[in-house]
Structures are given as C-alpha cells and as structure tokens.
C-alpha cells in the first residue's frame, strides 16, 4: 500500500469531533497527573520538581527542533510533548542526574514519537521507549532502589524481588497508597494516581476496558502465583499498589496511539500487559516491570486488533 499523502488532511490522527479537542484531552490528562506530581514533591522535595520541570522543558524543546528538521508545521502546542516529558519524569527516581533526564526525554520524543511523523503515528508509547532506552544503558542510575538507599522510605517491589515476602510483610497498604514508597517519583504515588485515573474515567477521556483488564490481569496472575506457589508470593493488592502499577494501568496503557480501539482487543491488550508484568516480576530481572510489559503488549496491538467484528453482509475485514 502506498503511504497516504495529505490530500486534504492537515493533521495526523487522532481526530475527535464533538467540540472536544485533542489538545483539551491532553490538558485534562496533565491535570489528572497533578495530584501525583504534588504528592511527589511533598515526599521527595525539590529534586522531584526539578526532574519533572527539566524533563518537560527538554521534551518541548526537542519536539520543536524536530518539527523544524522534518519541515512540517509544528504541532508542539498540542501539549503532548509536556505529557510525554511528564510521563518519563514520573518513571524516574527523584535522584536522577540531569543528563539522564535530558537524554531520556530527548530519546522519548525522537525515538518514541517524532520519527513516526508526530503524534498518533507512534506504534509504541513514547515515554516507554525513552525509559527502556535509558534503563538498559544506565541501569544503576535508573533504578530507584539503588540510587536512593539513604532514604528512610521503603521500596516494596524491589525488596520483594530481592529479599522475598518476609522482608515486605511490615509495609502497610496505607503507606503505599499515600505514596510513601520508593519507585518512579510520580508513578509510585498510588493513591493520587488512582484519583487521577478515576477523574479521566469520569470525564470519558479514557475507556474503562484497558485499566480494568490490566488490573484484572495483574490480580489474576498474582492469584495464580499465590495458589500454586509455596507461600512466598505477594498478594494481588500488594502488586497493584506497589510501585508504578496503577500509573501503568490508567495512564501508560491507555495512550491512544499505541493501544487498540475496539472493546475486545482492548481487553486482550490490558490482560496481556497485566499478565506479562507479573511474569517479568516473577521470573525476570526487573522488579517493577510495567514499562517493559506494556511495550510488549503494544507490539502485539496490530495483531490484537484483527479480532474485529465481521461487518454485516461482507467477508472478513482486511486489517
């Protein structure tokens, strides 16, 4: 198939028509992230604010330069660059050095978004691409646990991964919900993230299928591990509110471009992400496996979207 040249179109998808603009949706998503951002500054202080601001600034700047480079009308004002910058910052430890923030935010925008010609074309979540690029390059700087050993806070998922269930039995759910845990600086603010997610759901900016299926996948896998394991596996609740699980469910997984658009594929995608997260936590080397699991699920999106209803009176849809 030939790439569709712009005959009449003036912008890449997604196109929303109902008085609601794409820019508006992006701004509301940023608004939904604010409680978590405030909680992050509350817990980690100015370093967290520094990481978030720097990341957003670099993301916007990189995107503006990229639009110039590919000689297209800039769409940097739609706010997605800020959102991607914020997503990336949310996954970082508060102690991240400046060069890590800069290179990761730039990688997110360039490799995750702009090489696909801007928003809507990217087959993978932009911030996820940036985060994984840095994670495999500078593992020790990216890992919240190893970089923040002097913090009085606990790192539930890491301690579970390295020391087992016994070591984390004294971490209370309330603490984790309040964000009193080490993880991605914003991603670990489970309670605030949950609030933001519910806001997005109530405003119908995201559909409930993906978050529900993702959480369902995590819970299901955790239950299976608990029932078949030898009592050393943590409960579903622990896995859900520990680390950045909820951030993945409500924000990273529901990124409009790389996620499916039909209900059944959405559920399959969410389940796949959740189950893969648990598999990597159990058998892999990453304690908080959400970004990797979501990347894998997004790779499968085009295949999952083939599970489409058959239009009445025609043959099978050619996807």
């Amino acid at each position: 198939m030939k790439p569709i040249e712009p005959l009449l179109t003036v912008a890449s998808p997604p196109h929303v028509h109902c008085g609601r603009t794409f820019k508006g949706m992006t701004l509301e998503t940023i608004l939904a992230l604010m409680p978590a951002a405030i909680m992050a500054v509350w817990h980690f202080g100015l370093p967290a604010a520094r990481v978030m601001l720097l990341s957003c600034a670099v993301a916007v700047l990189t995107e503006a330069v990229c639009w110039k480079a590919i000689k297209r009308r800039s769409a940097v004002d739609d706010g997605t660059a800020v959102l991607i910058g914020l997503f990336y910052a949310f996954l970082l430890p508060a102690s991240a050095p400046w060069w890590l923030v800069v290179s990761g935010a730039a990688a997110s925008i360039i490799l995750g978004k702009m090489i696909f010609g801007g928003n809507g074309g990217n087959p993978l979540g932009a911030a996820l691409v940036g985060w994984t690029t840095c994670r495999i390059s500078w593992g020790t700087f990216m890992d919240p646990y190893t970089t923040m050993l002097d913090s009085p806070l606990r790192a539930p998922l890491h301690e579970l991964h390295y020391f087992g269930l016994q070591a984390v039995s004294d971490i209370s759910a309330t603490n984790m919900l309040l964000g009193e845990q080490i993880g991605g600086l914003g991603a670990a603010q489970s309670g605030a993230i949950l609030l933001g997610g519910l806001y997005l759901l109530s405003r119908r900016i995201i559909r409930p299928e993906i978050p529900v299926a993702f959480i369902g996948g995590i819970a299901l896998a955790a239950l299976v591990f608990q029932l078949t394991g030898d009592g050393t596996n943590a409960s579903a609740t622990f896995h859900l509110i520990g680390g950045g699980t909820l951030f993945g469910a409500f924000f990273l997984a529901t990124d409009p471009a790389p996620s499916p658009v039909l209900p059944v594929p959405m559920i399959a995608y969410g389940l796949m992400g959740g189950i893969l997260t648990m598999l990597i936590r159990q058998y892999g080397m990453y304690p908080d496996a959400v970004p990797f699991a979501l990347l894998l699920a997004q790779l499968a999106t085009p295949l999952l979207e083939r599970i489409a209803p058959k239009p009445f009176g025609t043959g099978r849809v050619k996807a």
Binding site: I4, I115, G118, F292, L299
Partner: peptide, 27 residues
C-alpha cells in the same frame, strides 16, 4: 498509513522498528 518523514520511509523505518522491538524484548 502514517505520515513518516520521507527520509525515514521504507527500510530505515523497518530497521528502527526492529530496534524498538529488540528493546522491548529486553523484558
């Protein structure tokens, strides 16, 4: 169906996409 910058269309895009897949497989 995506408006990829012209210099990246075709093989370069396929290679970069393969790279991103390989990145995800680091999981």
């Amino acid at each position: 169906m995506v408006r990829i910058p012209i210099a990246l269309r075709g093989t370069p895009m396929a290679l970069i996409m393969a790279g991103l897949m390989s990145l995800a497989f680091f999981a």
